[in-house]
Simulated scan of single mutants.
Amino acid sequence: MQPSSEETAVHRAMALLAQHRLVTTLQMQQLLSPGSTRQFTSGVLNTLREAQLVSYAELPVGRTRAWFLTLRGVRATSSWPELRGRRVPALGNPTEASLRAAHTLTVVRSHLAFLHDARRRGDEYGALDWVPEIGHRLPDTGGEDKLIADAVMHYTAIEPDRLQYRAFVEVDRGTMSSERLAAKLISYARFHDYTPQPVGRRGTVADQAAMLAWQRFYPRFPRILFILTGAPEDSLRRRIDDLRAMTAAHPLVSQLAGHVQLGAAVLEELEQHGPTGPVWTPLAGDADGRSWMEL
């Protein structure tokens, strides 16, 4: 017996909440089934709420509901094949969800910009191909010991050639200083060059030829995309200029730019023109706008 469309939607909605942590009703509709009605999506979420698998925080703007898995929902999804190898955190309660809402929902907005564009183009990119909060160890240099990307994106373009893309995504709402935002490029540069050494051993020729840390996870180092929002346009442009200045001035980042595509864009422009529009500013070389695939 085949599952009904509602049963399938219930399963997918739980998987999406497990992956993306916190999603509004409208975002869930766009992720789950953009051709369905809002009433259908609300019905799916309310079915899960009655089963005590999900809950929601009511946000002050427009009385928007932001949905998340309860602890029971987290336990139910922890062994699902589509979530294998991914940590499914529990937000705990509506208050904690509300405190995380601004950043988490903006990250989902960024994902939706790519998802809408991929559907229009016919590319292979689904609602679970954007994985939030991916962490990697950094070398012990007395600074940060971990790099946590806001998301890692897995995208396959179909035309004109079939090409696979991966990207680290950093979403900035203007809540940190421009200098601190640009310093994230240094962390990525450190990760790019990091070769873990066996505990208790000095570096040898064999160790130097060992696999770089990122090669354990990616066939090619992902491009790095900064998505900016939450400030006037001139302020966002200055932040992009600061990212370009860091790329030009810091030797590690300049070296990274020789191997990895780096770009920045304004979220509202992504939503208006699509990520494959000429809305991305390269962080190295000329500053002419281009598609994220052409960085």
Rank of each mutant, 00 (worst) to 15 (best):
A97H: 07
R173N: 10
H111G: 08
Q197G: 12
E124Q: 14
I134V: 15
E6M: 09
E268Q: 14
F191N: 05
T141H: 13
L212N: 06
R12H: 04
Q255L: 10
E50W: 09
T77H: 00
L295C: 02
V108F: 03
A15F: 01
L228K: 04
P3C: 08
F68E: 00
A167C: 05
T156F: 04
E96C: 05
L181H: 01
T47E: 06
L283A: 10
S235P: 00
H154S: 13
Q39G: 07
M293P: 00
A265E: 08
Q208A: 15
P251A: 08
R190C: 03
P222F: 05
E271M: 14
P60W: 03
A13Q: 04
R239K: 14
P160I: 11
T24Q: 05
W130K: 09
D234H: 15
A157G: 14
E159Q: 14
E294V: 00
T24V: 10
H273E: 14
R21K: 13
A231G: 04
E170A: 08
P282D: 10
G200T: 05
V169W: 07
F191T: 03
A213T: 07
G122H: 11
M153E: 12
L128T: 03
T64F: 03
R216S: 13
Y56H: 14
L252P: 00
T64C: 10
E6Y: 02
D242M: 12
G174L: 02
S42R: 13
P139D: 12
G277V: 09
V107Y: 03
L59M: 11
K184Y: 04
Q164E: 13
L236G: 04
A206K: 13
D140P: 11
A113D: 04
S291R: 00
F68C: 00
S177L: 06
P198T: 09
H250C: 06
Q164Y: 07
S110Y: 10
M153L: 15
E50Y: 11
L91E: 00
L91S: 01
A113M: 06
T276E: 06
T229P: 02
M211Q: 15
V54N: 03
L59K: 05
H20E: 02
G203C: 08
R180N: 08
E159W: 09
G263F: 06
T175L: 11
W80N: 05
M246W: 07
R162T: 13
A257Y: 07
L69S: 06
Q261S: 14
V169K: 03
W130F: 15
T229F: 04
V44R: 04
T156Y: 03
A66W: 08
F226Y: 15
D145L: 14
D234E: 14
R223I: 01
L252E: 14
S78W: 01
R220G: 08
E82P: 00
A97V: 11
R180L: 04
V107D: 02
R190D: 09
A189P: 02
A213M: 09
A97T: 09
I134L: 15
L83M: 08
R38H: 08
R173Y: 04
L48H: 04
A149D: 06
A257K: 06
R166I: 00
G258K: 02
A9R: 11
R38Y: 08
R75S: 12
S4T: 15
A127P: 15
E96L: 09
R237K: 13
R86A: 02
L147Y: 11
R223K: 10
K146T: 15
